[in-house]
Write a protein that binds this DNA or RNA. Sequence first.
DNA 1: CGCGTGGTTGAGTCATCTCAATTACTGTGG
DNA 2: CCACAGTAATTGAGATGACTCAACCACGCG
Lengths: 237, 237
Amino acid sequence: MLADGLERFGRLSHGDRDLLAQAVGRVDVLQAGMDVLTEGDRPPGCMVVLEGALFSYKLLSDGRRQILSFLIPGDLAGSSGLMLGRMDHSVAALMPSSVATVPRQAMMEMVATRPSIAQALWRETQVAGAVTREWVANIGQRPAYQRIAHLICEMRARFEAAGLGANGRIAWPFTQAHIAEATGLSSVHVNRTLQQIRGDGLITLNLGTLVIHDWKGLQQAGDFTPAYLFLPPSNNT
Amino acid sequence: MLADGLERFGRLSHGDRDLLAQAVGRVDVLQAGMDVLTEGDRPPGCMVVLEGALFSYKLLSDGRRQILSFLIPGDLAGSSGLMLGRMDHSVAALMPSSVATVPRQAMMEMVATRPSIAQALWRETQVAGAVTREWVANIGQRPAYQRIAHLICEMRARFEAAGLGANGRIAWPFTQAHIAEATGLSSVHVNRTLQQIRGDGLITLNLGTLVIHDWKGLQQAGDFTPAYLFLPPSNNT
DNA sequence: CGCGTGGTTGAGTCATCTCAATTACTGTGG
DNA sequence: CCACAGTAATTGAGATGACTCAACCACGCG
């Protein structure tokens, strides 16, 4: 539940955990492609991803779409809209997924009365911000090959930290079109660049499974350093 | 002081303001180009820009630099490093500037004891995050002309909200190289694109002064909507 | 077995980049 | 008051990374 997601960002007491558990309003099962939160709307609450994968995005006036982050089990969605009262971006399911929602009202009360919960939420916002900043640098400065390699590295680090996959073998839910929208490249170019990355022996990617053959090489290729993810120490392979 | 900067993000009591005022450790005067915060370091505290302009940035391994945001009077720097304990980016002065610093220790105490201050800081983090997300979309999806127009719109909106400049006339502290590093373009291309924007009669830009002749046209050109800045209502011209 | 989604390929185009000078402006020392 | 240095802006020319358009292929599913 939410407590599990938040615990990565600060210690919670038993009381905190109980409160969070009781506050869960409902659990939704989502089909691929469904929106959970919409830009401009007042969010119904704060959500935790239980299963599957979501992505947050912005739609531009000409119809182009920029993916801002990928959300995997344990990640929060909509926490930034809690205090601001309005979503600045949308969130949608990438594959069949389930999310638990804690109503906004309940969240606000806990934030006001439980400093440890408030601090954990603040930290979560800060880490999400650090990741977004790395994306700005990735998209703004790195050429396609590095950019995609970097994204793959980030996803590996986060998947394994979440206990999904190990030893560089993970279930990969993203299409090349998703990678394109996340990196600001065309899907054709993503396709050709992935072929190069594979050709260089760094990864295998098919049937929805990613295998990283040369973790060190991939990190170098993507200029990747996991510091910005602020993961707990043990997972920085 | 800090209280003025924070008050944009939540109401503060007289007690809060007094506390913040007393907590100010020191005021630094900075020359252009000086670093105030360095990636990887534990930040000495939370800073407010008093005068001038700063920018936050990331340095990549090949020496390229991505500017992540511009900071003008009233903006905070380093707040994200407070709880995370380490800066994920650096901050430097763009021109002669002054900043007030509240030591980390004092900040942490106020966060623990003053919910209104903690909430204001959290909101500040959320708004900064929303702005960064818009930058991802800007850099990832928009062509050079739109991208630069969008940045100019953002800066105008923020400058005027901060009471610096009015009626589309503002003191413009950014060089074309800064714009290039912020938008992920080469400075040569920024130069040529600015010529187009000027040629289209949207702006005049020289001698460090920006004049916007056609605000509506510039916003359209940049696909700009100020919602993501979460400015107080009155300033959304 | 046909349809849909996702992946792959080819070919031509264009936005943007790099390299390399040149020009303007500002402040400084002689 | 002028020569000079340093920074910022501008211009030219050629190279290229990435894009678009348009097919085509492969697989999974009803």
